[in-house]
Amino acid sequence: MNMPTRSLLPTLGLAMLLFAAGCSKKAPIPPPPPAPAPASQAPASSAPAAGRATISEFSVEPSSVERGQSAILRWTVTGATDVVIDHGIGTVPATGTRSLVPAETTTYTITANSAAGPATRTATVTVTTPQPPAQPRPAANPRGTLESRVLSDLKDAYFDYDSNNIRDDARAALQADADALKKIFADFPAATVALEGHCDERGSAEYNLGLGDRRASSARDFLVSQGIPADKLKTISYGKERPTCTDATEDCYQKNRRAHFAAGQ
Protein backbone atom coordinates (compact mmCIF):
# COMPACT_ATOMS: atom_id res chain seq x y z
CA MET A 1 0.00 0.00 0.00
CA ASN A 2 2.27 2.73 -1.25
CA MET A 3 -0.44 4.96 -2.52
CA PRO A 4 -1.38 6.83 0.68
CA THR A 5 2.25 7.60 1.46
CA ARG A 6 2.92 8.93 -2.00
CA SER A 7 -0.13 11.11 -2.06
CA LEU A 8 0.88 12.46 1.33
CA LEU A 9 4.14 13.98 0.11
CA PRO A 10 2.76 16.81 -2.03
CA THR A 11 0.18 17.56 0.62
CA LEU A 12 2.87 17.82 3.25
CA GLY A 13 4.85 20.09 1.00
CA LEU A 14 1.83 22.29 0.60
CA ALA A 15 1.31 22.33 4.33
CA MET A 16 4.89 23.41 4.89
CA LEU A 17 4.53 26.14 2.28
CA LEU A 18 1.41 27.40 3.99
CA PHE A 19 3.17 27.24 7.31
CA ALA A 20 6.16 29.17 5.95
CA ALA A 21 3.86 31.79 4.45
CA GLY A 22 2.69 32.64 7.91
CA CYS A 23 -0.72 31.12 7.76
CA SER A 24 -2.43 34.46 8.26
CA LYS A 25 -5.63 33.24 6.73
CA LYS A 26 -8.50 32.77 9.08
CA ALA A 27 -9.27 29.17 9.76
CA PRO A 28 -12.06 28.03 7.51
CA ILE A 29 -15.43 27.87 9.14
CA PRO A 30 -16.37 24.27 9.72
CA PRO A 31 -19.33 23.11 7.72
CA PRO A 32 -22.60 22.51 9.47
CA PRO A 33 -22.95 19.26 11.34
CA PRO A 34 -23.32 16.29 9.09
CA ALA A 35 -26.73 15.06 8.24
CA PRO A 36 -27.60 11.80 9.92
CA ALA A 37 -26.61 8.77 7.96
CA PRO A 38 -29.28 7.77 5.42
CA ALA A 39 -31.89 5.68 7.10
CA SER A 40 -32.02 3.26 4.25
CA GLN A 41 -29.28 2.36 1.89
CA ALA A 42 -29.60 0.82 -1.45
CA PRO A 43 -30.39 -2.84 -0.97
CA ALA A 44 -27.51 -5.04 -1.93
CA SER A 45 -29.71 -6.92 -4.36
CA SER A 46 -30.17 -3.81 -6.50
CA ALA A 47 -26.44 -3.69 -7.27
CA PRO A 48 -25.23 -5.56 -10.30
CA ALA A 49 -24.36 -8.96 -8.99
CA ALA A 50 -21.06 -9.33 -10.81
CA GLY A 51 -20.37 -5.61 -11.26
CA ARG A 52 -17.47 -3.73 -9.78
CA ALA A 53 -18.25 -1.30 -6.92
CA THR A 54 -18.12 2.37 -7.74
CA ILE A 55 -16.83 5.04 -5.39
CA SER A 56 -18.45 8.11 -6.80
CA GLU A 57 -17.36 10.37 -3.98
CA PHE A 58 -14.78 10.30 -1.18
CA SER A 59 -13.75 13.69 0.11
CA VAL A 60 -12.80 15.57 3.22
CA GLU A 61 -13.96 19.11 3.88
CA PRO A 62 -12.15 21.29 4.55
CA SER A 63 -9.02 19.68 3.19
CA SER A 64 -6.88 21.67 5.59
CA VAL A 65 -7.68 22.33 9.25
CA GLU A 66 -5.85 23.66 12.25
CA ARG A 67 -5.00 21.16 14.91
CA GLY A 68 -7.98 20.54 17.18
CA GLN A 69 -10.57 21.54 14.57
CA SER A 70 -12.88 19.08 12.93
CA ALA A 71 -13.30 18.05 9.29
CA ILE A 72 -16.06 16.11 7.55
CA LEU A 73 -15.39 12.94 5.63
CA ARG A 74 -18.05 12.27 2.95
CA TRP A 75 -18.46 9.27 0.73
CA THR A 76 -20.88 7.69 -1.76
CA VAL A 77 -20.40 4.11 -2.94
CA THR A 78 -22.58 1.95 -5.09
CA GLY A 79 -22.47 -1.73 -5.82
CA ALA A 80 -20.34 -2.77 -2.86
CA THR A 81 -20.87 -5.71 -0.54
CA ASP A 82 -19.17 -3.78 2.24
CA VAL A 83 -17.36 -0.49 2.65
CA VAL A 84 -14.40 0.05 4.98
CA ILE A 85 -12.49 3.21 5.88
CA ASP A 86 -9.12 2.88 7.59
CA HIS A 87 -7.68 4.79 10.59
CA GLY A 88 -10.01 3.04 12.95
CA ILE A 89 -13.27 4.12 11.31
CA GLY A 90 -14.09 0.59 10.13
CA THR A 91 -17.11 -0.65 8.24
CA VAL A 92 -19.52 2.09 7.22
CA PRO A 93 -22.78 2.40 5.25
CA ALA A 94 -22.50 2.85 1.48
CA THR A 95 -23.23 6.54 1.82
CA GLY A 96 -22.36 8.67 4.75
CA THR A 97 -20.42 11.35 6.51
CA ARG A 98 -18.14 11.33 9.53
CA SER A 99 -16.83 14.16 11.65
CA LEU A 100 -13.15 13.87 12.48
CA VAL A 101 -10.68 15.68 14.70
CA PRO A 102 -7.37 14.50 13.23
CA ALA A 103 -4.31 15.06 15.38
CA GLU A 104 -2.02 15.21 12.39
CA THR A 105 -2.15 15.23 8.58
CA THR A 106 -3.92 12.02 7.60
CA THR A 107 -4.72 10.22 4.38
CA TYR A 108 -7.89 8.15 4.63
CA THR A 109 -8.45 5.23 2.33
CA ILE A 110 -11.92 3.92 1.53
CA THR A 111 -12.19 0.36 0.29
CA ALA A 112 -15.36 -0.82 -1.43
CA ASN A 113 -15.43 -4.59 -1.71
CA SER A 114 -17.46 -6.49 -4.21
CA ALA A 115 -17.42 -9.80 -5.97
CA ALA A 116 -15.27 -8.26 -8.69
CA GLY A 117 -12.67 -7.15 -6.21
CA PRO A 118 -11.97 -4.09 -4.13
CA ALA A 119 -12.00 -0.52 -5.28
CA THR A 120 -10.16 2.17 -3.30
CA ARG A 121 -9.88 5.91 -3.15
CA THR A 122 -8.04 8.21 -0.80
CA ALA A 123 -8.67 11.59 0.71
CA THR A 124 -6.21 13.64 2.68
CA VAL A 125 -6.78 16.22 5.39
CA THR A 126 -3.86 18.48 6.14
CA VAL A 127 -3.51 19.48 9.78
CA THR A 128 -1.59 22.64 10.45
CA THR A 129 -0.19 23.61 13.80
CA PRO A 130 -0.71 27.25 14.66
CA GLN A 131 2.47 29.19 15.22
CA PRO A 132 3.22 29.68 18.88
CA PRO A 133 2.53 33.42 18.98
CA ALA A 134 -0.53 33.07 16.78
CA GLN A 135 -3.57 35.02 17.77
CA PRO A 136 -5.01 33.75 21.04
CA ARG A 137 -7.76 31.25 20.74
CA PRO A 138 -10.21 32.16 23.44
CA ALA A 139 -12.82 30.06 21.76
CA ALA A 140 -10.73 26.91 21.92
CA ASN A 141 -11.97 25.94 25.36
CA PRO A 142 -14.94 28.05 26.22
CA ARG A 143 -15.14 26.35 29.58
CA GLY A 144 -11.92 27.78 30.98
CA THR A 145 -8.39 26.69 31.72
CA LEU A 146 -7.28 23.20 32.67
CA GLU A 147 -6.63 24.38 36.23
CA SER A 148 -10.08 25.88 36.62
CA ARG A 149 -11.73 22.80 35.15
CA VAL A 150 -9.82 20.45 37.48
CA LEU A 151 -10.76 22.66 40.42
CA SER A 152 -14.44 22.98 39.57
CA ASP A 153 -15.30 19.66 37.94
CA LEU A 154 -13.36 17.09 40.02
CA LYS A 155 -14.40 16.24 43.56
CA ASP A 156 -12.20 14.77 46.29
CA ALA A 157 -12.69 11.15 47.35
CA TYR A 158 -12.62 10.60 51.13
CA PHE A 159 -11.27 7.70 53.16
CA ASP A 160 -11.64 6.07 56.57
CA TYR A 161 -8.90 6.34 59.18
CA ASP A 162 -5.75 4.37 58.28
CA SER A 163 -7.51 2.95 55.21
CA ASN A 164 -7.26 3.18 51.44
CA ASN A 165 -10.53 1.33 50.75
CA ILE A 166 -12.85 3.09 48.30
CA ARG A 167 -16.01 3.49 50.35
CA ASP A 168 -19.44 4.07 48.81
CA ASP A 169 -19.35 7.87 48.86
CA ALA A 170 -15.85 7.84 47.35
CA ARG A 171 -17.02 5.42 44.66
CA ALA A 172 -19.83 7.81 43.68
CA ALA A 173 -17.44 10.77 43.69
CA LEU A 174 -14.87 8.94 41.57
CA GLN A 175 -17.49 7.75 39.08
CA ALA A 176 -18.51 11.38 38.55
CA ASP A 177 -14.84 12.31 38.39
CA ALA A 178 -14.26 9.72 35.67
CA ASP A 179 -17.00 11.30 33.52
CA ALA A 180 -15.63 14.78 34.15
CA LEU A 181 -12.08 13.62 33.38
CA LYS A 182 -13.18 12.24 30.01
CA LYS A 183 -14.56 15.66 29.10
CA ILE A 184 -11.46 17.43 30.40
CA PHE A 185 -9.13 15.17 28.44
CA ALA A 186 -11.28 15.67 25.33
CA ASP A 187 -10.88 19.44 25.71
CA PHE A 188 -7.22 19.22 26.74
CA PRO A 189 -5.82 16.22 24.87
CA ALA A 190 -2.24 16.84 26.04
CA ALA A 191 -3.10 17.30 29.72
CA THR A 192 -2.30 14.98 32.61
CA VAL A 193 -3.94 15.18 36.00
CA ALA A 194 -2.20 14.53 39.32
CA LEU A 195 -3.95 12.47 41.98
CA GLU A 196 -2.72 13.52 45.41
CA GLY A 197 -3.02 11.25 48.46
CA HIS A 198 -3.47 13.04 51.80
CA CYS A 199 -3.79 11.94 55.42
CA ASP A 200 -4.94 13.37 58.72
CA GLU A 201 -2.44 14.45 61.38
CA ARG A 202 -2.64 11.29 63.46
CA GLY A 203 -0.14 8.49 62.88
CA SER A 204 3.50 9.21 62.13
CA ALA A 205 4.56 11.41 59.22
CA GLU A 206 6.61 8.54 57.79
CA TYR A 207 3.79 5.98 57.80
CA ASN A 208 1.33 8.54 56.42
CA LEU A 209 3.59 9.11 53.42
CA GLY A 210 3.09 5.43 52.54
CA LEU A 211 -0.62 5.58 53.32
CA GLY A 212 -1.15 8.67 51.13
CA ASP A 213 0.52 6.85 48.25
CA ARG A 214 -1.89 3.95 48.69
CA ARG A 215 -4.90 6.26 48.73
CA ALA A 216 -3.77 7.97 45.52
CA SER A 217 -3.16 4.66 43.75
CA SER A 218 -6.48 3.18 44.94
CA ALA A 219 -8.29 6.17 43.44
CA ARG A 220 -6.18 5.91 40.29
CA ASP A 221 -6.94 2.20 39.90
CA PHE A 222 -10.65 2.90 40.27
CA LEU A 223 -10.56 5.64 37.62
CA VAL A 224 -8.63 3.36 35.25
CA SER A 225 -11.35 0.74 35.75
CA GLN A 226 -13.80 3.44 34.64
CA GLY A 227 -11.94 3.91 31.37
CA ILE A 228 -9.46 6.67 32.17
CA PRO A 229 -6.06 5.91 30.57
CA ALA A 230 -3.50 5.18 33.29
CA ASP A 231 -0.87 7.35 31.62
CA LYS A 232 -3.11 10.39 32.02
CA LEU A 233 -3.02 10.11 35.82
CA LYS A 234 0.04 10.68 37.97
CA THR A 235 -0.04 9.81 41.68
CA ILE A 236 1.75 11.73 44.41
CA SER A 237 1.60 11.26 48.16
CA TYR A 238 1.83 14.27 50.43
CA GLY A 239 1.25 12.18 53.57
CA LYS A 240 0.16 14.66 56.20
CA GLU A 241 2.45 17.44 54.98
CA ARG A 242 -0.23 19.51 53.23
CA PRO A 243 -3.40 19.42 55.32
CA THR A 244 -6.43 21.35 54.11
CA CYS A 245 -7.30 22.17 57.72
CA THR A 246 -5.45 21.85 61.02
CA ASP A 247 -8.07 21.51 63.76
CA ALA A 248 -7.87 18.47 66.01
CA THR A 249 -11.44 17.40 65.25
CA GLU A 250 -12.85 14.41 63.40
CA ASP A 251 -14.52 16.82 60.97
CA CYS A 252 -11.14 18.24 60.03
CA TYR A 253 -9.44 14.83 60.05
CA GLN A 254 -12.04 13.60 57.54
CA LYS A 255 -11.42 16.58 55.26
CA ASN A 256 -7.74 15.68 55.21
CA ARG A 257 -8.16 11.95 54.50
CA ARG A 258 -8.63 12.35 50.78
CA ALA A 259 -7.56 11.83 47.21
CA HIS A 260 -7.39 15.25 45.57
CA PHE A 261 -6.95 16.26 41.92
CA ALA A 262 -4.51 18.83 40.57
CA ALA A 263 -3.70 19.84 37.01
CA GLY A 264 -0.57 18.25 35.55
CA GLN A 265 1.99 20.20 33.55
Partner: peptide, 8 residues
Amino acid sequence: QQASMNAT
Protein backbone atom coordinates in the same frame (compact mmCIF):
# COMPACT_ATOMS: atom_id res chain seq x y z
CA GLN B 1 14.46 4.22 41.23
CA GLN B 2 11.28 4.70 39.17
CA ALA B 3 8.52 4.95 41.76
CA SER B 4 5.82 7.32 42.97
CA MET B 5 7.70 7.43 46.31
CA ASN B 6 11.24 6.78 47.55
CA ALA B 7 11.41 7.85 51.18
CA THR B 8 12.62 7.44 54.78
